[in-house]
Write a protein that binds this DNA or RNA. Structure first.
Lengths: 209, 209, 209, 209
DNA sequence: TATGAATGAGATTTCATTCAT
DNA sequence: AATGAATGAAATCTCATTCAT
């Protein structure tokens, strides 16, 4: 009634639908969300959803892709690739966490939902895998004298896992962005020397027997 | 005559049901699992399931609790609390990862399921929170001269996140337990000095420009 | 309410459902019939239909099979296989048409429905094919001096087609059973000598110019 | 600019639509065919379909009528009405079967569809009725000394049924046109003396016991 | 104690059909 | 004359859950 049963160009409607879908999926989860609910939120009829997106699964996929795209774009454009390594790292981590912070509902929940929902675990896993590879390469290239048997990839897995956990804390508002950023930066930095044996000497020194 | 198949003591029936439920939930996920399927697997009738556990949600909760309990018990009993800190850490990490490795199907999948399903995110989050607190306390007590503003809890969040990520890799068979353990131990150890400012000095030295 | 939401043994419910399904399918046709309508007619809930028969298609298949079985049984038991050929033919044709006459709604309409419904054309065609083969063999064995190139099978096709058409007339009440039987018997009998050339001589004699 | 693609004269458009509709209906059946599919095949928009034909049912009716008309025209124009009865019969049967043979897809399938779909059984039945009447009149006029109680119409029903069955065989490619024609001609010819008593004498002679 | 029988409620999806331009 | 945009209505099917025995 208030909203609009008006004729809208396809592109506009698409966004309108995705907005609604992201909103509802985020709040209720994939399974608990009905197409009816999304249609209602978007103030359109259910058949439109199917006309535009084919199925609930595809609709969710479209949500995922849009949010993923936005995330990548935003983060990418806020990283200062010309800066020195540590500064670059700082801008990257900050861009990442700030995006999470600013898009709590939509992104983290979509992300969480997708991780579980069997049909999308795949997509998320792939995305994560790419990030892990990236981080792995950064670690490798950033380490001056790598031990021969250093498993940079597993280290990357750990760091990305840590990043996700921190991001989750940020997304729930339970952690301060700046503080979280500082910690992540440090952790990554440490990761660069985290290869097994190498670290022991220095680290142990500061620690209670 | 007409009645039931076999009279079994309550405790046995309960386990029989949980075994079946864990099995099916693990394979198919929470939403894709029907009570019918569980009843069939347990070779009992659906009303029994409801008699014992009240609802699908409660049944899943019971699965979760049992598996969580087993996990905690097993890990606990394999940690050498009398050992020196680093050795204690080693036994803990190994116990953790070995459990994961030995119970791939049941635990990690249940865990993943629970994380998503809105109704249980709660339970999992609580469990994780307890672990994070524990790790946080360990960090605090393990650090000789803590900086005043060190946020041990957030560091614990990161480390636990890293641990989960690694555990996930182990559970899929994509990472070797021993290697993963070594890496986690190192990471935690480093975590002890991961408080912002303190680390910079040493770490930077090994790193490119 | 009036009918019965009572507990019934499986076998009884099955028949009750099939009765309802046959009734409604017959009146409305396969596509125009909804499972809701059948459930209502059977005075049970829709899930029962699915519990017992799995899908609309399978339900229809079950109807088809039951009616087909009844038809075959009834007709078979009314044929006098010990009689002389012509008498045997007579009993067979009468049994066939009388069944049709007595079961107008159920059988003929089911038959018609099935013929069309893509998914069952198959079943019906097979059944018809068997009858055609049977008739073909009868023709062959009944003809004393068959012409070498006589296509008994195609003749059987024609005779069965004629039989179906007549049966259809009977089922709508537009033809008298006894008269129809006599005609069919004659036609079949003639069919026995219907091989092309053979007939010409006699037939032409009775015909104008 | 925004508007329509091409302005075509009404008659052309109509044929274009019917062509598409016949094609799709034939392949998929009435129920399985969507207006969308037809519009797509005709390369026009759905509202056009509705503008020209009002509803799916009417569109199918139009298809049926056009095909029926073509069929009648074609067959009619190939019958040699001036020939002697038997030759006339031959030309008629051949015209009929040749048309079927040449228009397998369109006609027989449409015909089958129509027979079932409740809404069109009517139309088909009427058409068949006209043919039956025609054949009945031919039988009557062709029989020199008809028995008083001979039911020529029912005989016509049988013969037309036989004709349909044979035609169906031809349409599936399972019967040769010429052979089928010869058989049909013979059957019709025999039908002329198919009145009960008359036939017995001759026929029995050729038959076993 | 144990279960076969039964269902209310709701999910996804598909169409024929119509506005507004 | 022609169409992209939009929908009401309904159909199939599934599932957690409960009686009645």
């Amino acid at each position: 009634m208030a909203g609009g049963t008006k004729r809208l160009p396809r592109a506009v409607r698409e966004q309108q639908m995705l907005d609604a879908a992201v909103e509802i999926f985020s709040v209720n989860g994939y399974h608990e969300t009905s197409m009816d609910a999304i249609a209602a939120e978007a103030q359109i009829s259910k058949p439109m959803l199917y006309l535009y997106y084919g199925s609930k699964e595809e609709l969710f996929g479209a949500c995922l892709n849009r949010e993923l795209g936005r995330f990548v774009d935003e983060v990418n454009s806020n990283i200062d690739f010309s800066a020195a390594p540590k500064e670059l790292l700082r801008t990257a981590v900050l861009a990442f966490l700030k995006y999470i912070d600013a898009n709590r509902a939509s992104w983290m929940v979509l992300y969480t939902q997708a991780t579980s929902s069997q049909a999308f675990a795949h997509t998320v896993r792939e995305g994560r895998e790419r990030i892990i590879e990236l981080v792995g390469r950064l670690l490798r290239s950033g380490t001056k004298f790598p031990e021969p048997d250093t498993d940079f990839e597993l280290m990357a897995v750990a760091l990305v896992g840590a990043g996700e956990a921190i991001a989750s804390r940020v997304s729930t508002g339970d952690a301060d962005v700046d503080e979280a950023a500082e910690l992540m930066i440090n952790l990554f930095w440490l990761g660069l020397k985290g290869a097994p044996s190498a670290a022991d000497v220095d680290a142990t020194a500061v620690i209670s027997s």
